[in-house]
Design a protein around this nucleic acid. Structure first.
Lengths: 143, 143
DNA sequence: ATTCTACCAACCTTTTAAGTAGGTAATATA
DNA sequence: TATATTACCTACTTAAAAGGTTGGTAGAAT
């Protein structure tokens, strides 16, 4: 599995905030209810998005979260980068990987590299707005 | 991380067998040494490839493993499918996933589906021969 | 003063990854 | 026939990650 619940849930929360963004600050309690997610778990994840300046959090009554940019100005890649960390498909390519002595002549490394590239490009090309508008619904299921 | 050592090592072993395939049966001891892999660990992984008819194993002195097909007739996808199992990027898409009630209106599912498709196509388009010939070496590293 | 909210630290449980240990069964060679 | 060599099998271990929960504190509105 490549993407854990952390990133997946974060995306769904961001989408929920995007859908309800006219209502000012939206309490996570509501979002969690709508999305059927654990409130407490989301409370653990959201501070990362705040710290990165992706959403604004307001304490107290009438508080909650709200998006800082327009939905079209968030790419899926940056949201996953913050919540999931590195999206490297293999350990050798992770940022914190210890240098591998075989890298110079490894027959498989270039392939992993290309996949890494492909996946990053994929997520780079999708914005919150794309998801909101359902621009991928025409994709067939894989057997 | 998407691909674990199981699949990565299996691929390297298959490549090693491909490179040395004129020498008849090749003992895993040699392969493990060349590839700097744990012999015992590989012994745990290879039976799956034998059972699927990807390699032949011969017991006893002079025994070892050998490829059954030509390198160009193995795709990376089938090797990973056997050693890694499902390549689904998210739990919702895995074969053994319990049906999700939100699937019908989930805004993110089509994206995961498309990624799944993309990754499978990617691995489908690469054969052992491609890797052997270094047909991916021109790929730049990602920052 | 009260209520609602974000935020934070510590803990917990289960699953997966990545092997290791110690064998048995088959095959060639001396 | 004895020995060496090899694949193959079962059980175990250790460490890390996933996926949360518990129990709070601090800030803001009414």
């Amino acid at each position: 599995m490549m993407i854990s619940t952390r990133g997946r849930y974060a995306l769904r929360v961001m989408l929920d905030l995007a859908e309800n963004r006219k209502d000012g600050y939206i309490p996570m309690k509501e979002v969690a209810q709508r999305q059927e997610l654990s409130l407490k778990y989301m409370e653990r994840i959201l501070p990362a998005l705040v710290k990165e300046g992706f959403v604004e959090g307001l304490h107290g009554k009438g508080g909650g979260y709200r998006l800082v940019r327009e939905p079209k100005d968030y790419t899926v890649r940056e949201i996953l980068r913050i919540t999931e960390g590195d999206l490297a498909p293999v350990a050798c390519l992770a940022c914190d990987a210890k240098p591998c002595g075989r890298a110079g002549f490894c027959k498989t490394l270039p392939m992993w590299n290309r996949l890494y590239h492909t996946v990053n490009d994929f997520f780079d090309g999708i914005t919150l707005e794309d998801l909101l508008e359902g621009r991928f619904d025409s994709v067939s299921v894989i057997p």
